[in-house]
Design a protein around this nucleic acid. Sequence first.
DNA 1: TCAACTGGATACTGTCACTCTCTAATACTG
DNA 2: CAGTATTAGAGAGTGACAGTATCCAGTTGA
Lengths: 216, 216
Amino acid sequence: MRISELSRRSGVPLATIKFYLRERLLHEGRLTSATQARYDESHLARLRLIQALTGPAGLSVAKTRRVLTLIDEPTAPTLDLLGSAHEVVSHPPAEEPPLEQVDAALRRLGWEVSEENQAHRAEVAAAVAAIGVADFALPERAFEGYATAMLEVAAMEIAAMPTESAEAAVRYVVLGTVLVEPLLLALRRLAQQEASKRRFGPPSEAARTPGQHVQP
Amino acid sequence: MRISELSRRSGVPLATIKFYLRERLLHEGRLTSATQARYDESHLARLRLIQALTGPAGLSVAKTRRVLTLIDEPTAPTLDLLGSAHEVVSHPPAEEPPLEQVDAALRRLGWEVSEENQAHRAEVAAAVAAIGVADFALPERAFEGYATAMLEVAAMEIAAMPTESAEAAVRYVVLGTVLVEPLLLALRRLAQQEASKRRFGPPSEAARTPGQHVQP
DNA sequence: TCAACTGGATACTGTCACTCTCTAATACTG
DNA sequence: CAGTATTAGAGAGTGACAGTATCCAGTTGA
């Protein structure tokens, strides 16, 4: 198909497609002459991916390009994968946050504390520090609760990780990391409403739902 | 103190403080004459809060102002609180996403599906839709797993919510919603690394940590 | 054949979060 | 009390970002 059809079918403005081509987010079409090229389904799929990454996932064009490069050229051995994927998405803290408290909590939980995961621990510590700076006290044992819940999530995700091909694994990890974040945050908000209803009682007549995890 | 001292003690550039004053993120100082004003600890605390919200929490100036207004003027009755807090932070989806699948899953989990939480369900549905559009298949039962984990998180948070004063409750809900998001995402990444190590075996000699939730 | 479309380059726009400059009025310093 | 430094307040300017728009020469389909 030609570029105008690609634009029509994807819903992405033509000028924007040209912009993505320029920025190397979208691979070039097959040139049929000096001023004509053909595009195919792969371009359509790529455009949808770009839309998901720059839209809901909230990635910048630069980060999107790095995610796409990672998917296109799965060079990393499977175990470094998580690292590469996370590197792309994470915002490394500007200054070094104090790790001690976080590390102590992680050790209590039986998590590994090593050089390999220092970057991640630093990010966690930075998030905790930001909470402290804002004079907001995390409830007692909240950190452990958060960590436990996220380990549940992560264990499920890692268990479901495809291992048959490197490409599939890369795609799963990279996209899973990025695309699921908005879902988790949205679910948390919805769950807060649900939990609040379960705690403070339903304002309407909907009191007979079974309900797990009710506060006693 | 005067503005230059406020700047020095907070680490926020003087021009930026003026900007925050103009944007009404920071309350005015007490004028001692036409061109002089005094600031106090409340300004310092507020600046730290602004830094946490615009920095790690990633809020825009406009959203930060709405969060601060909410904290300053706790008008909402305790139960609408969550709604107001979420309203400020959430990105309502541009077009209406299909709710059926999400609603069905929620009903299976025993969560309430009502008009009150329609906005949140729409956000969840939009996140799911974005994942679908990107051609990324959520693993089997993953949605339920995510929902269950987030309900655990939310139940803990709601249980710890202070009820003695409206101000405290508002502050807890608003800041808790916003500031904990980066922490959760960072913890998820760290947990993925931990889970991956537990599944694929430690590449180093650290195999003797107790470890809950190990994959069999 | 000729209007419509195309690739490619360059220039422009709007938004955001500051940052700079300026003015007139204090405030400290010697 | 002279002179330098600060200040409040307002407006203009900056740089990054994510597109949009314009233009040109070549190509295509009716």
